[in-house]
Protein backbone atom coordinates (compact mmCIF):
# COMPACT_ATOMS: atom_id res chain seq x y z
CA UNK A 1 0.00 0.00 0.00
CA UNK A 2 1.56 3.30 -1.07
CA UNK A 3 1.31 6.54 0.86
CA UNK A 4 -1.49 9.03 0.33
CA UNK A 5 -0.83 12.76 0.43
CA UNK A 6 -2.86 15.97 0.15
CA UNK A 7 -2.62 19.10 -1.98
CA UNK A 8 -4.35 22.32 -0.96
CA UNK A 9 -5.66 24.61 -3.73
CA UNK A 10 -7.83 27.70 -4.09
CA UNK A 11 -10.49 27.33 -6.78
CA UNK A 12 -10.49 30.19 -9.29
CA UNK A 13 -13.90 29.44 -10.81
CA UNK A 14 -15.71 32.29 -9.01
CA UNK A 15 -15.22 34.90 -6.24
CA UNK A 16 -16.10 32.29 -3.61
CA UNK A 17 -12.55 30.91 -3.92
CA UNK A 18 -13.23 27.58 -2.22
CA UNK A 19 -10.25 26.02 -0.43
CA UNK A 20 -10.09 22.61 -2.12
CA UNK A 21 -8.17 19.60 -0.80
CA UNK A 22 -7.11 16.89 -3.23
CA UNK A 23 -6.01 13.56 -1.78
CA UNK A 24 -3.59 11.63 -4.00
CA UNK A 25 -1.94 8.26 -3.94
CA UNK A 26 1.20 7.17 -5.73
CA UNK A 27 0.41 4.29 -8.06
CA UNK A 28 3.25 2.78 -10.10
CA UNK A 29 4.86 5.90 -11.49
CA UNK A 30 1.84 8.22 -11.62
CA UNK A 31 -0.47 9.58 -8.97
CA UNK A 32 -4.11 8.76 -8.62
CA UNK A 33 -6.73 11.10 -7.21
CA UNK A 34 -8.49 9.50 -4.26
CA UNK A 35 -10.79 12.40 -3.42
CA UNK A 36 -11.56 16.09 -3.95
CA UNK A 37 -13.13 17.90 -1.00
CA UNK A 38 -13.97 21.47 -0.01
CA UNK A 39 -15.46 22.53 -3.34
CA UNK A 40 -19.08 23.70 -3.44
CA UNK A 41 -19.75 23.02 -7.11
CA UNK A 42 -18.64 20.72 -9.99
CA UNK A 43 -16.44 23.52 -11.39
CA UNK A 44 -14.24 23.19 -8.31
CA UNK A 45 -13.89 19.44 -8.78
CA UNK A 46 -12.89 19.77 -12.45
CA UNK A 47 -10.49 22.63 -11.69
CA UNK A 48 -8.79 20.73 -8.86
CA UNK A 49 -8.36 17.54 -10.92
CA UNK A 50 -6.78 19.47 -13.82
CA UNK A 51 -4.65 21.60 -11.51
CA UNK A 52 -3.02 18.61 -9.75
CA UNK A 53 -2.61 16.38 -12.83
CA UNK A 54 -1.93 18.80 -15.70
CA UNK A 55 -1.81 22.48 -14.68
CA UNK A 56 -1.49 24.78 -17.70
CA UNK A 57 -1.22 28.54 -18.28
CA UNK A 58 -1.27 31.00 -21.15
CA UNK A 59 2.01 32.92 -20.86
CA UNK A 60 2.11 36.58 -21.91
CA UNK A 61 5.18 38.81 -22.02
CA UNK A 62 6.91 41.34 -24.27
CA UNK A 63 9.79 41.24 -26.76
CA UNK A 64 11.88 44.07 -28.17
CA UNK A 65 11.03 45.60 -31.55
CA UNK A 66 13.55 47.20 -33.89
CA UNK A 67 12.68 50.20 -36.08
CA UNK A 68 9.15 50.32 -34.67
CA UNK A 69 6.89 53.10 -33.41
CA UNK A 70 7.11 51.40 -29.99
CA UNK A 71 10.13 49.70 -28.37
CA UNK A 72 8.23 46.60 -27.14
CA UNK A 73 5.45 44.35 -28.39
CA UNK A 74 3.05 42.14 -26.43
CA UNK A 75 3.44 38.39 -27.22
CA UNK A 76 1.74 35.26 -25.89
CA UNK A 77 1.67 31.50 -26.21
CA UNK A 78 -0.82 30.54 -28.94
CA UNK A 79 -2.44 28.12 -26.47
CA UNK A 80 -1.87 27.11 -22.85
CA UNK A 81 1.39 25.36 -21.92
CA UNK A 82 2.33 23.23 -18.88
CA UNK A 83 2.79 25.40 -15.79
CA UNK A 84 6.30 24.09 -15.12
CA UNK A 85 7.37 25.35 -18.57
CA UNK A 86 6.62 29.02 -17.76
CA UNK A 87 10.20 29.92 -16.81
CA UNK A 88 11.68 27.98 -19.77
CA UNK A 89 9.29 29.84 -22.04
CA UNK A 90 10.35 33.22 -20.64
CA UNK A 91 14.03 32.20 -20.87
CA UNK A 92 13.60 31.17 -24.53
CA UNK A 93 12.32 34.65 -25.30
CA UNK A 94 15.21 36.46 -23.62
CA UNK A 95 17.17 38.22 -26.36
CA UNK A 96 14.50 37.70 -29.03
CA UNK A 97 13.86 40.81 -31.10
CA UNK A 98 11.48 41.33 -34.00
CA UNK A 99 11.61 43.90 -36.78
CA UNK A 100 8.63 46.22 -37.24
CA UNK A 101 5.97 46.08 -38.55
CA UNK A 102 4.50 43.48 -36.19
CA UNK A 103 0.86 42.42 -36.50
CA UNK A 104 -1.38 40.56 -34.06
CA UNK A 105 -1.07 36.83 -34.81
CA UNK A 106 2.43 36.99 -36.36
CA UNK A 107 4.55 34.02 -35.28
CA UNK A 108 7.47 35.19 -33.15
CA UNK A 109 8.96 31.81 -32.16
CA UNK A 110 7.94 28.23 -33.03
CA UNK A 111 7.75 25.39 -30.50
CA UNK A 112 8.76 27.47 -27.49
CA UNK A 113 10.69 25.45 -24.86
CA UNK A 114 9.78 22.18 -26.64
CA UNK A 115 6.09 22.61 -25.81
CA UNK A 116 4.92 22.37 -29.42
CA UNK A 117 3.26 25.77 -28.93
CA UNK A 118 4.22 28.90 -30.85
CA UNK A 119 4.73 32.40 -29.45
CA UNK A 120 2.57 34.85 -31.38
CA UNK A 121 2.28 38.65 -31.38
CA UNK A 122 -0.60 40.05 -29.32
CA UNK A 123 -0.12 43.67 -30.29
CA UNK A 124 0.45 45.79 -33.40
CA UNK A 125 3.58 47.92 -33.89
CA UNK A 126 3.96 49.98 -37.05
CA UNK A 127 7.36 50.54 -38.65
CA UNK A 128 9.00 53.94 -38.26
CA UNK A 129 9.47 55.83 -41.52
CA UNK A 130 13.00 55.35 -42.92
CA UNK A 131 14.16 58.87 -41.99
CA UNK A 132 13.16 58.44 -38.33
CA UNK A 133 15.07 55.21 -37.70
Amino acid sequence: MSETYKKELTCIGCPLGCPVTVTLQDASGHCEIISVTGNTCPKGDAYARKEVTNPTRIVTTTVRVTDGAAPMVNVKTASDIPKEKISDCIAALRGVTVAAPVKIGDTILNNVAETGVAIIAAGNVTALPQEMR
Binding site: T60, G123, N124
Partner: peptide, 25 residues
Protein backbone atom coordinates in the same frame (compact mmCIF):
# COMPACT_ATOMS: atom_id res chain seq x y z
CA UNK B 1 -5.23 48.41 -22.27
CA UNK B 2 -1.99 49.00 -24.17
CA UNK B 3 0.08 48.28 -21.06
CA UNK B 4 -2.10 45.40 -19.79
CA UNK B 5 -0.30 42.61 -21.63
CA UNK B 6 -1.85 39.80 -19.56
CA UNK B 7 -4.78 37.84 -20.97
CA UNK B 8 -8.36 37.55 -19.79
CA UNK B 9 -9.95 40.56 -21.52
CA UNK B 10 -13.06 40.16 -23.66
CA UNK B 11 -14.57 36.94 -22.31
CA UNK B 12 -18.02 38.61 -22.25
CA UNK B 13 -17.64 40.75 -25.39
CA UNK B 14 -15.85 38.36 -27.76
CA UNK B 15 -16.12 34.98 -26.01
CA UNK B 16 -12.34 34.59 -25.89
CA UNK B 17 -9.49 35.64 -23.64
CA UNK B 18 -7.51 38.45 -25.24
CA UNK B 19 -4.58 40.50 -24.02
CA UNK B 20 -5.13 44.24 -23.46
CA UNK B 21 -3.54 45.32 -26.75
CA UNK B 22 -5.59 42.69 -28.64
CA UNK B 23 -8.84 43.93 -27.04
CA UNK B 24 -7.93 47.55 -27.80
CA UNK B 25 -7.03 46.68 -31.41
Amino acid sequence: LNQCIHNGFGLHTFGEELTGPEYAA
